[in-house]
Computed example of a mutant assay.
Amino acid sequence: MRILLTNDDGIHAPGLGVLERIARQLSDDIWIVAPAEEQSGAGHSLTLNRPVRLRQHDERRFSVSGTPTDSVTMALRKVMPEKPDLILSGVNRGANQGDDITYSGTVSAAIEGTLAGIRSIALSQIYAKGKGGDVSFDAAEQWGARALRPLLDMEFSERTLVNVNFPARPADEVEGIRVVRQGFHDYSRGTLVESVDPRGFPYFWFGLESVEHTPGHETDLEAGEDGFIAVTPLQLDLTHYPSLERLHERYRGDS
């Protein structure tokens, strides 16, 4: 099985090293193509206004001067001799749950793989508030292969991917694995930090404090809080089907 690894934290990120060790428990045919620098929050963006540069670090390890989407695109169109059987994106430093997945470069790399018809999985390690760069990947490291193995011979539905979040706990305190739906964050109270730089110009920083959310029953948010690994299937079709008929009625005279 040929596996492509990528991420949004960059080619030198600790989480990518964790992902490589996980992947090597599943296969010895591993390729890595990841952004040269951190691209957290890049979403599903594609570089169009400047050239993208490719750097080779060893036989099967490359970095790209662009986004996670660029990295997967370069891997499939330029780097790899054949398409991979599986794309793994991560392990991200921080959760990708609820509505945050729309910002996530980690999930977006898996989306790009899904668009190419390749089984794709995003993996993220939740960490406790205030940890900063001191993030433990213990849960992901010890549970990663176990969480992935049931997915390896599973046929994914067309245009779907799987999102996996590991809880902010030591591996021996993880409660298990839950298959759950996507949760919902309430960003209506998000903050904007405003200050002035040494030259006297104002700048703004988006606050990263806790956001109120409504976990509901068995969502990825609730699973993480309860100490479970959250496994969530995601679909690329954003159509809201219940609204189709109502919209048809609204535009009936113009159709």
Rank of each mutant, 00 (worst) to 15 (best):
Q125G: 15
G105M: 14
T106D: 07
R119P: 02
G105K: 13
I121K: 01
I118Y: 04
G105R: 12
A122C: 06
Y103K: 02
Q125P: 07
D134H: 01
D134A: 04
R93I: 12
K129G: 06
V91T: 10
D138L: 11
A110H: 12
R93H: 04
I126C: 07
I126Q: 14
R119K: 06
G133T: 03
I111S: 05
V135N: 03
G133S: 06
G105P: 15
I118L: 01
G130C: 05
G90A: 05
Y103P: 00
G130D: 08
Q125K: 09
D134C: 07
L115Y: 11
G117K: 06
D138E: 10
A128I: 05
G132V: 01
S136L: 12
A95E: 13
T102A: 07
S136I: 06
I126W: 08
Q97V: 04
L115E: 05
D99Q: 02
N92G: 14
I111Q: 04
V91Y: 06
D99W: 04
L123I: 04
I101N: 11
F137L: 14
A128D: 08
I101M: 10
R93Q: 13
I101Q: 01
A95T: 03
A95C: 09
N92A: 11
D100C: 01
G130A: 01
G130L: 00
Y103G: 14
V107G: 10
A139W: 07
V91G: 15
S108A: 14
S89W: 02
G130P: 11
L123N: 05
S124T: 14
R93P: 07
S124Y: 15
Y103W: 08
A110Y: 08
K131M: 13
V107T: 12
T106V: 14
G113F: 00
I101G: 03
A95V: 15
A139C: 03
L115W: 09
D99H: 08
A110D: 05
R119H: 02
I126G: 04
I101A: 11
S104I: 05
E112L: 09
S136G: 09
T106L: 14
T106A: 08
A116C: 15
G94M: 01
T106I: 08
F137N: 15
A128Q: 09
A116R: 10
R93C: 13
G117D: 07
R93K: 13
D138C: 13
S124D: 13
R119E: 05
A110C: 15
K131N: 11
A122E: 10
I126M: 15
G113E: 05
K129D: 05
L88G: 08
G133D: 13
I101E: 09
S104M: 15
N92F: 11
D99G: 05
V135H: 06
A122I: 08
G90S: 10
G117L: 11
S124K: 03
Q97A: 10
D134M: 09
Q97T: 15
